[in-house]
């Protein structure tokens, strides 16, 4: 199973820009890569379900019939919330700055002051 990508992927010929903000170009490509990896994971899970069924350990329908117990429900919810917290962290950062009244000006002042003393 391969998870490392090591190839030389440089393409001769300037990569065009698509959106006014270069960051959106990067983001669009990253979303494609992430979707590709999601697709890879789903294929792998599907392989797993097939193999389990082939070995007559479980039927594939058992996966859909599975009813999580309370402990499982709690564990899943905890994991989902952790995932979503990570997802929103960039916005949390901005909210935290607003609470502390932090600013670019303060950042620049710190740089200037540190340079002096």
């Amino acid at each position: 199973m391969s998870d490392n990508t090591t190839s030389n992927r440089t393409i001769k010929g300037k990569r065009p820009s698509f959106f006014d903000a270069r960051g959106v170009d990067y983001l669009m490509h990253m979303v494609m890569v992430l979707t590709q990896e999601l697709s890879v994971t789903r294929d792998r899970l599907d392989t797993l379900e097939h193999l389990i069924e082939d070995k007559e350990l479980l039927k594939r329908t058992d996966f859909d019939r599975f009813a999580p117990d309370q402990a499982c429900l709690e564990e899943r919810e905890k994991n989902r919330q952790a995932l979503i917290k990570n997802l929103f962290s960039v916005m949390d950062q901005e909210a935290a700055e607003l609470v502390k009244n932090d600013s670019k000006e303060r950042f620049d002042e710190v740089i200037a002051e540190t340079a002096k003393g």
Binding site: M1, M32, Q36, S39, T47
Partner: peptide, 14 residues
């Protein structure tokens, strides 16, 4: 391997 193939299949589908 299966993940290599899955990445390629994704590209074909995309």
């Amino acid at each position: 391997d299966s993940n290599h193939i899955a990445r390629q299949e994704f590209v074909k589908s995309l």
